[in-house]
Design a protein around this nucleic acid. Sequence first.
DNA 1: CCGCATTTGTACGTATGTATG
DNA 2: TCATACATACGTACAAATGCG
Lengths: 134, 134
Amino acid sequence: MTVNSRGDRALYQQVADIIRADIASGKLKAGENLPSEAQLSGTLGVGREAIRQALGVLRAEGLIVTERGFGSRVREAQQRRIVKLRRGDTVIARMPSEPERREMDLDQGVPLLVLTRADGSSELLAGDATALNA
Amino acid sequence: MTVNSRGDRALYQQVADIIRADIASGKLKAGENLPSEAQLSGTLGVGREAIRQALGVLRAEGLIVTERGFGSRVREAQQRRIVKLRRGDTVIARMPSEPERREMDLDQGVPLLVLTRADGSSELLAGDATALNA
DNA sequence: CCGCATTTGTACGTATGTATG
DNA sequence: TCATACATACGTACAAATGCG
């Protein structure tokens, strides 16, 4: 598995593809730490920015989480709470704004579910911790 | 409205806050073009990278879309198709992977809804174009 | 159709700040 | 205290797409 600067895809996309595949295949397991940016940079032979962009893609996909001063690790599947929908309830999905994300303490790449009950009341639900059931 | 390098928030977050507020207030209307990165850089007195990071935040929130060689504009609300949920249907939300995003031609910052019908069949729905109704 | 200016995308380097262990 | 690691932010350069004359 290596990157190719002559490929039609950007280096950082190729890096993201490699890591995503490693996660999907189980070569990188949930909760496991990724190599540091510097290590990935050296191993794959690309600059740190390409590595950081790749990790940014994977964070936006909700596949990894990164902690400053520590590193990145494969995000673990969240326990899902099942929310029963009743007749007349409606739901839409969207991404939280940054302030909302901090407020609700959500990881990057986690969508929000806006549940509006038939009576007009509404709730914000973390998309990775919620399963809807009609 | 200006940025402050001594603030406790990063410059790019401050820039994102300003533009987000301009969108929320209607000062920047749906479909309207944002100033170019170079213009924002000059106007706000920060480097291009801080501007690009700010725009990246807003893209991830689904607030703007960017076209290479053209610029960024405020994303317009999508017409939502209403999907009726029947008893036994379940739905979870997640972000698409980059390959899925390109495949389904989704903008950044648009979540995916995975609808599994009671009979076991499932569908992928664009979160910004779908409203669930139980 | 062609060339040009504009604009975003990619990728590198460098430096400094800040959190973790 | 200290090394490690990520975050922020500047600069530079070139590639690639768009729109216009």
